[in-house]
Deep mutational scan, measured.
Amino acid sequence: MKHYEVEILDAKTREKLCFLDKVEPHATIAEIKNLFTKTHPQWYPARQSLRLDPKGKSLKDEDVLQKLPVGTTATLYFRDLGAQISWVTVFLTEYAGPLFIYLLFYFRVPFIYGHKYDFTSSRHTVVHLACICHSFHYIKRLLETLFVHRFSHGTMPLRNIFKNCTYYWGFAAWMAYYINHPLYTPPTYGAQQVKLALAIFVICQLGNFSIHMALRDLRPAGSKTRKIPYPTKNPFTWLFLLVSCPNYTYEVGSWIGFAIMTQCLPVALFSLVGFTQMTIWAKGKHRSYLKEFRDYPPLRMPIIPFLL
């Protein structure tokens, strides 16, 4: 059985960083990364991007050496992705923050609204209902991160945790300040508006959870398998008939419901920014589905049925 020789060059300087002799033909890129780490321990596998061309796409960890368009002496180019952190850690951090930050404003801890309001309670029912909904949303997200989601990528750049936390924590503080303010004004149409908004919120939260469970069942634990998601017997998953990412559709719907319930401008802005970002993600995933699966359902749109 022939063996391969693998040289790894710096993608920027073309400097030879490592030479691997007698590499098995069936070795994966993940195994080559581990061998590279032995000579350069500062670059652990998650930091490494190996590619066939200095400006090309990163090879997948599961790619097999003998199936790549290389000879028995293969040249790979290395790029440092920077310090990495696990997706689970990032999600837990960015979701735990809003949960606790919101509660600080809800309980009106000292130095927020003035001494005479310390630890007082709002007289408006919608304020307490909003706290329950907000807390439920982020507790749900935390539990899904721990027990439901299966991540195709193990890590992301460390800098992302600061960007994500600034976004989630900042908006949580902004909306919580106004919703729990002693001078907060309840919704214009009173109980009817709150009940309608609560119904929207609850339905969308159930829908979002149902989609996450359906997506989880598509991917076996520990794998990166991708399949076309289809509706199940659960009615909340029937939205798969019309959109590629109904989890985002339901998520946006939840925040629209919360915005109607609280009639709070920061919540509306958070919903708008979230919708914009999720639309970008949904379009990317939709394109990926179309590219990977020739039999992908043609009627589906990325996030909004028939429109977007």
Results as ranks from 00 to 15, higher is better:
Ala199Gly: 12
His212Arg: 02
Cys245Val: 15
Gln277Trp: 13
Thr237Met: 05
Phe136Thr: 06
Val194Glu: 12
Tyr77Gln: 05
Tyr177Ala: 06
Pro186Ser: 12
His286Val: 05
Gly274Arg: 03
Arg287Phe: 01
Ile112Leu: 03
Ser244His: 15
Phe162Val: 02
Val127Thr: 03
Gly154Glu: 14
Val243Ser: 07
Cys204Trp: 04
Ser58Asn: 02
Thr120Ala: 06
Pro69His: 04
Lys33Pro: 01
Ala197Ser: 08
Cys264Trp: 03
Val267Lys: 00
Phe105Trp: 00
Gly71Ile: 00
Val126Glu: 12
Lys163Asn: 05
Tyr102Leu: 02
Phe270Asp: 01
Ala130Thr: 07
Phe119Trp: 00
Val90Ala: 11
Gly284Phe: 03
Glu292Tyr: 14
Asn164Glu: 09
Lys2Ala: 07
Gly284Arg: 10
Asn164Trp: 04
Ile161Leu: 14
Ser223Leu: 15
Lys116Thr: 13
Arg123Met: 12
His212Tyr: 02
Gly190Cys: 14
His40Asn: 01
Lys2Tyr: 07
Asp80Cys: 15
Thr249Ser: 09
Leu103Pro: 07
Ile161Thr: 09
Pro186Val: 13
Arg123Leu: 04
Gln42Ser: 05
Glu15Pro: 15
Gly257Glu: 15
Ser58Trp: 06
Tyr44Ser: 09
His286Pro: 08
Tyr184Cys: 06
Lys22Cys: 02
Val202Leu: 09
Thr155Ala: 11
Ala199Asn: 15
Thr125Arg: 11
Tyr230Pro: 14
Leu20Glu: 05
His26Pro: 08
Thr262Ala: 10
Ala11Cys: 04
Lys16Phe: 09
Leu59Met: 05
Lys227Tyr: 15
Pro302Ile: 08
Pro54Arg: 07
Arg108Asn: 01
Cys133Thr: 02
Arg294Gly: 09
Tyr106Leu: 13
Phe100Leu: 12
Ala259Ser: 06
Asp63Tyr: 06
Thr13Phe: 06
His134Met: 02
Thr72Asn: 08
His40Thr: 02
Asp21Tyr: 09
Ala268Glu: 02
Cys165Phe: 11
Glu15Ser: 00
Phe105Tyr: 15
Pro41Ala: 06
Asp217Asn: 08
Ile203Asn: 02
Glu31Gly: 10
Thr13Met: 11
Glu144Val: 03
Leu307Ala: 07
Ile85Ser: 07
Leu76Val: 04
Cys133Gln: 10
Ala191Asp: 06
Asp217Gly: 10
Cys245Ile: 15
Trp174Ser: 12
Gly222Trp: 09
Ser121Thr: 06
Tyr4Trp: 04
Phe151Val: 07
His137Arg: 01
Tyr138Gln: 15
Lys22Pro: 12
Ala83Leu: 02
Gly274Ser: 09
Thr237Lys: 07
Tyr113Ile: 12
Leu308Pro: 10
His128Asp: 02
Glu94Leu: 02
Phe36Ser: 08
Tyr138Ser: 00
Ser49Val: 03
Ser135Met: 05
Lys38Arg: 12
Gln48Ile: 01
Thr13Tyr: 02
Ile8Pro: 02
Asn160His: 14
Tyr248Arg: 15
Leu198Phe: 12
Cys133Ala: 04
Gln48Cys: 03
Ser58Gly: 14
Ala46Leu: 04
Ile303Pro: 00
Tyr250Trp: 15
Ala172Val: 07
Phe111Leu: 11
Val90Asp: 14
Asn160Tyr: 13
Phe107Lys: 02
Ala176Leu: 03
Thr188Asn: 02
Ile203Asp: 15
Gly71Asp: 10
Val126Ser: 14
Ser49Lys: 03
Tyr44Met: 12
Phe105Ala: 15
Ile228Met: 06
Cys264Gly: 10
Leu183Ile: 03
Phe91Gly: 03
Gly274Asp: 03
Gly154Leu: 05
Ser58Tyr: 03
Leu65Val: 08
Val23Ile: 14
Phe78Ser: 12
Ala259Glu: 14
Ser223Asp: 01
Tyr95Val: 02
Ile132Ala: 13
Pro187Ile: 02
Ile132Lys: 13
Phe19Glu: 06
Leu52Pro: 07
Ser288Cys: 09
Leu269Val: 08
Ile200Gly: 15
Ala74Gly: 14
Ile161Ser: 13
Ala191Gly: 05
Ile303Ala: 04
Thr89Glu: 15
His40Leu: 09
His115Phe: 14
Ala96Val: 09
Glu251Lys: 05
Glu7Cys: 11
Pro297Ser: 07
Cys131Asn: 14
Leu20Pro: 04
Ile200Ala: 08
Ser122Ile: 10
Pro229Leu: 07
Thr166Gly: 09
Ala83Gln: 05
Pro298Thr: 05
Trp281Ser: 05
Cys133Asp: 01
Gly71Cys: 10
Phe236Met: 00
Tyr178Trp: 04
Phe107Pro: 02
Lys33Glu: 08
Thr276Ile: 08
Trp255Thr: 09
Tyr289His: 11
Phe119Gly: 01
Asn180Lys: 03
Ala176His: 01
Ile280Leu: 13
Ile211Lys: 15
Leu81Phe: 06
Gln205Tyr: 15
Phe91Ile: 13
Asn164Pro: 14
Tyr167Asn: 00
Lys67Arg: 10
Val127Gln: 00
Gln48Pro: 12
Phe171Leu: 07
Asp61His: 11
Phe105Leu: 08
Ile112Val: 10
Arg287Cys: 11
Glu94Thr: 02
